[in-house]
Design a protein around this nucleic acid. Structure first.
Lengths: 334, 334
DNA sequence: TTGTAGGCGTTATCAC
DNA sequence: GTGATAACGCCTACAA
């Protein structure tokens, strides 16, 4: 691979001048620029990005930590992020935290050790305090899907509480009064917020959540199917069940069918996230839209603006969910 | 950030010695090693990976090019790859090619410009010839899900033809004789191979594919729903439809339901890939297992062995699909 | 076993 | 505008 030095020789200029035309940051006489460009072309020169990084103290890489690389949710998020950076000539280093405390911390250390210019974190297990301290360190980062007041300026988040509220409100408006709830792991902030929204909606109707009609799932299909089985096993009546995400809702639909119960005839189901496949379940899932791709994109833009000084980039930090009505909810006739 | 130089000063040794204990490649007296380790600890030293890369001509990064970052298929693949590399202290730079010729080529150039030690490519649009030439260049790469005889030693692939064969054979064994086919984009090698397998199975029963019962889809849900509608519109009888992937199968199931047709009562459906959600469709999808996570892992191990000289690592390059029987296929009573 | 010194390919700060 | 020249932080012969 040709080096900048060989280019400078061939062009008959100094190595500094070549650097200038590469970076286009200092005026260079048009004739010399042309000579340099020609030499670069002739040698098939391409700058060594590692050397650039070392000299400029900029790696042009952004570390991304997500819980998982698979699943309908993270893929959308990564797509939004990667597209934005690629267009800006930056690259992403991606790793997974598996919602596990030690793994998440190792992941962050791993990315920092890679000299990332910034991090985008979708972390669930590390504490608020840990992140607040991390904010004092040198590597800048944004938080996706998490809101910590002390570092609010670094958070891109959805109003999960409102989402939970909207889901349950929809059921209430359809006449449902006996509503079961399949939650995500309650130590996760989004799972908790969604449930709080659920409670707020109930309260507006002078209702309270029945702890016996509550099941704590794992945000995966099996959580939904196990949850529904557990709810049915209580023998308590309910006309609707809200699931804290679409994957559990999907599992609940399957479990219901296996017990010979039809949704929404026997009971209604509402999900959360509006992942791609929610449109292809049977029945099609009524759910809460989570604009995760757009939020990923915003996280990328935050980095572009705050770290790479791309001004005139607008960043939206707070997102509002909204209800998507499909076929899994009907009016209660009780 | 502390540098190796500061560590050497504090430990009272030369900078070379510090480098030696970091890389653990040259014998160092135990007592000095301890001194160095202590100094590193005290200063909170962490090697600058960029400087390491420049000096050693190794970036410890592997570029991954996939068609998309979302979707049930690529996520599994990336999970397998990332886990393997992370454990080996390497990191992955991921980008998307969107099944588009120019984008794929740019993606490859982009990764090469990032000084990746190796690439893992899941490319669909670039030609065999392009890849054969790329193999002559300096950056090593493996191909995932593609078999090119001229560079077979760099290919990790599934026997797609066999998969297509198994899917159709299953239907034939269940007594189906009028079988429709919803294909992937036929310019993609896997889509073509699957269809060829379909034809081979038919031939064994002295049958031929009916071109009127063939629809070329896009490997996405809409392709499946559009495809099924088109097949029904022909008014030709069929008792089964094989879909070239699960997403299209899912779309076909939905479309069937919308037309008031029950699967598998009116006709059977078989998919391909065995993606995660195939178990949660209604009815549960009979399909062909594609061990994509394992194959991603193998691609990573190929790199570890060929590029990073981790010997005693076994790599399996050819994978065989097998049939998964669930609920979307029943015996034909015709 | 340890130290010296020359690179790795750029960027950036000075002069001129 | 352009050219020297010192960083950037580390690796690795080669010597000792």
């Amino acid at each position: 691979m040709a080096t900048i030095y060989e280019v400078s020789e061939l062009a008959g200029v100094s190595l500094a001048t070549v650097s200038r035309v590469i970076n286009n940051n200092t005026p260079v006489r048009e004739s010399t620029r042309k000579k340099v460009l020609a030499a670069m072309e002739q040698l098939g020169y391409r700058p060594n990005s590692i050397a650039q990084s070392l000299a400029s103290n900029r790696s042009n890489s952004i570390g991304i930590l997500v819980s998982e690389l698979h699943g309908p949710f993270y893929g959308e998020m990564l797509t939004g992020i990667e597209a934005e950076f690629r267009a800006a000539g930056k690259h992403v280093i991606i790793t997974a935290g598996h919602s596990d405390l030690a793994t998440e911390q190792e992941g962050i250390e791993f990315l920092k050790s890679r000299n990332c210019d910034a991090l985008i974190l979708h972390v669930e297990a590390v504490s608020d305090q840990y992140l607040i301290e991390l904010a004092a360190a040198e590597t800048p980062f944004v938080l996706l899907n998490r809101h910590i007041p002390a570092i609010a300026e670094r958070c891109i988040s959805l109003n999960n509480e409102l989402g939970g509220y909207l889901a349950t409100q929809h059921l209430l408006q359809q006449g449902h009064r006996q509503i079961a709830y399949i939650a995500g792991p309650m130590w996760k902030t989004d799972a908790k917020a969604r449930y709080q929204g659920h409670q707020r909606a109930l309260a507006e109707y002078q209702l309270q959540a029945n702890p016996k009609l509550f099941f704590e799932g794992d945000f995966r299909e099996t959580g939904g199917s196990d949850g529904l089985s557990a709810l049915l096993a209580t023998k308590l009546p309910f006309t609707a069940v809200v699931c804290a995400n679409d994957e559990m809702a999907s599992g609940a639909l399957t479990a219901a069918r296996e017990q010979g119960l039809a949704v929404p005839d026997h009971f209604s189901v509402v999900g959360f996230d509006n992942v791609n496949f929610a449109y292809y379940t049977y029945p099609k899932l009524s759910t809460i839209d989570y604009p995760i791709s757009a939020m990923g994109k915003m996280a990328a833009r935050w980095v572009l603006r705050e770290v790479y000084q791309c001004n005139n980039i607008k960043v939206q930090q707070l997102f509002e969910p909204h209800l998507i009505v499909r076929d899994s909810v009907v009016a209660s006739n009780l």
